[in-house]
Structure formats: C-alpha cells, structure tokens
Write a protein that binds this DNA or RNA. Structure first.
Lengths: 182, 182
DNA sequence: CATATTCTAGAATACTATTCTAGTATGGTT
DNA sequence: AACCATACTAGAATAGTATTCTAGAATATG
C-alpha cells in the first residue's frame, strides 16, 4: 500500500489524505468508500501487518516441542521478520501506541486475544512439564518481548552496528535464562 | 498542563487546539505565542516529562556504588515513577514513537544523549570492575529497559492485577541475572 | 439484457490549525 | 512618573485538510 510509505516517511499526522490519493492513484471517493476515515485506513494497515507477524510467530512457536528451542525460535523469528519487513516493522512500531488503535480495533482486539491465547497454551504446556518457570502472565511478555521490542526499536532507527545474529544470541540466551525452570 | 489531560483522553490527533484553549483558558494567540504549533506543544510536554524521569533515574543510579544494587534501584525507580506519575507515564509511552518527536527534538536529542552518556559511565565502571558483563550497548538497553517498558505498558492499560512490588522483584532479578558477570 | 450493487470521481462542505493585526500587561530606564 | 521595549493576549481572518455528497461508471447477478 502506498499509504504505508507515506506514513513512514512523513508520519501519520503529517501525511495528508491528498498525498495518499496521488501516490496510490485513487480518488477521494474511492478512498472514503473503502475506509471510514484516515484513522481507519491507518488501522487497517496496522492490522494487516500485525496479522502477518503473528501468523509467522505462531507457526514458528508451535513447531517447537522443546521449550528452549521455542524461545530461541521466537527470538530469531522476531528479528528476521523485522529484517525482512522493515517498512512494516517501522510502521507497527510507531503505531503500536497510537491512541486510536485501541479504540478503532474490534478486529485487532480479537486478533490479539487469540494470539495471546495460543501463546499461553504453548507456555502452559511447558510450565506443567516443569521446563518453564511459573510466573505472572505480564512477566512473560515483559521478559520475552520487551528486550526484542527495545532492541528492534534502536535497530530500526539505524543506531545499531550489531548484526542480528549476534543480537539474537544475546537476547535468546537472556530470555531463556529468565524463563527457564532452574 | 491541561493539554496533557486532553492528549491522554482523546489522543494527540483527536485533540483540537480549540479544546486545549478551553480547558486551559488560554487564547489562540497566547498558545501560538508560546508554541510554534501543536506538535511543538506536544513535544514540549514530552520533554518536560522525560526530563523529570531522567533526573530521578540518574539520581537513583549514581547513588549506588554496588552494581547489583544499581540495577535493582533502577527497576524500582522506574516502577515507582510510573505509579506516581501515571498521566505522564501514559503520555510518554504514547508519544515515544510519535514521528515528530525525533524531528522536533533538538533539545530532546541533547537530553537523551547526556542521559545515555551518564548511564554509560556508570556501566563502564562496573564492567571494568568485572561485576557486569561486557555486552554491545544496544543489548544493555534492551535487557534492562525492554522488560520495564513492556510491563509498564500493560500495567498502564490496566490489564495487570500484579502489584508493583512483585513485578519489581521478578524484573530486577531477571535484569540482573542477564547483566551480571557470572 | 436489465437491474442492483459496488466502486470511482471530484466538487462542495465543514473543520481545525495557523497567521495576523491590534491591542494590553510588564519590566526596565531616564 | 513618563517612556519605551518587550513579552504576552485576544480573537477575527485565512489557509489547508478531512470528510461528505451527488452523479455517474464498472461490475456482478438474475
């Protein structure tokens, strides 16, 4: 979508609908036929990206029987998805906290809930099996995804000289050692 | 500032300057005399918040001679600042990724650079002393702040039943074990 | 082929940010 | 105290952008 490039270059607020019109060749009427408004357009874009990310995430996670392998796979997957879809990653990263995502996201909430639920199932299995520590839910997300998000953020800004392979090693090791049952 | 409440309630884009006018009692002219435009107003607010956060951060960190104590202090500080300044925390959290922060932030970049520099100094000391592992810079931020940001985010959305004392314990322990020289 | 529905155009409208002009307080200077 | 300069306030005027609306074109359906 042309809107993605516009939003990434200029930012959501700075991108006039007229620019999206030009870049995409669509008319005002057409745009407003497909999307209720600019926010919804942005939200639709966001959802498209996040669904793609989540789909791969679950695929990689559920492919792992082994707890440690699962955690490592997630870290590698996250970094490679970001590397392969930098435009999307930038956009998702920016829009994640956008006020209207929460409101405008019936579909998004559903997707997120399902996503969390599936991950939860995987984790519970390994917790019962004594491979992963029993921790409050919030803490899993914080320990596993927090460092990934933070690293990704600086990497996307181009502030990182580190290659993803090395980063993956550090981050996976750290995540695993904080989550594993010791 | 009244603008803070408006932005938090409605979101930046959804908040018309006219509303800020009403809530704050200031006139259009007055607002535009003090701030170049709406973005700058938002950025000024952001900077005010982040400076307060950073000031306390450095105070707590530099008060600790001991590496482990420092890491634990940061975790506690972060959580208590967020608890005590939820409005600010919500705002900073949302605006962190806002496109215009980067651009509109001469002053902000300076503040961030100084902040990073001071933290770096503290870390380097403890790395030399063999207390903290030698890791790429990006990784420190990811491992220490990533989980805090992620946890904070869910807590601010009200999705967490966990109390901060418990959270602090988990997060501090995890951060320390991934950073310490073993 | 007829008809209904979806989609496209682009002008008209309605907001909202921002600018401008004129004026009002304030603080310093003689 | 009178004067000036500067900082600030007001609110109307302007400009620019999102959104709506009306008419018409394309596409699907019976």
């Amino acid at each position: 979508m042309a809107a993605l490039r516009c939003f990434n270059e200029l930012g959501y607020t700075e991108t006039p609908v007229s620019l999206i019109r030009k870049k995409s060749g669509a008319s005002t009427g057409s745009i407003y036929h497909h999307f209720k408004n600019k926010e919804r357009l942005a939200a639709t874009l966001y959802i498209e990206g996040i669904l793609d990310y989540q789909k791969g995430y679950l695929k990689h996670l559920s492919a792992c029987q082994n707890a440690k392998a699962g955690i490592f796979a997630i870290v590698r997957y996250h970094l490679s998805w970001v590397t392969e879809n930098p435009e999307w990653a930038i956009y998702l990263n920016r829009m994640r906290h956008a006020e209207f995502m929460a409101a405008s996201g019936e579909q998004l909430n559903k997707a997120n809930a399902d996503f969390i639920h599936e991950i939860g199932a995987w984790f519970r299995g390994h917790i019962k099996a004594g491979k992963i520590r029993k921790l409050p839910v919030e803490i899993y997300a914080a320990l596993l995804m927090g460092p990934l998000q933070e690293y990704t953020r600086t990497w996307l800004r181009g502030d990182s000289a580190l290659n993803h392979g090395d980063a993956a090693a550090y981050l996976a090791e750290a995540a695993w050692s904080s989550l594993k049952q010791s």
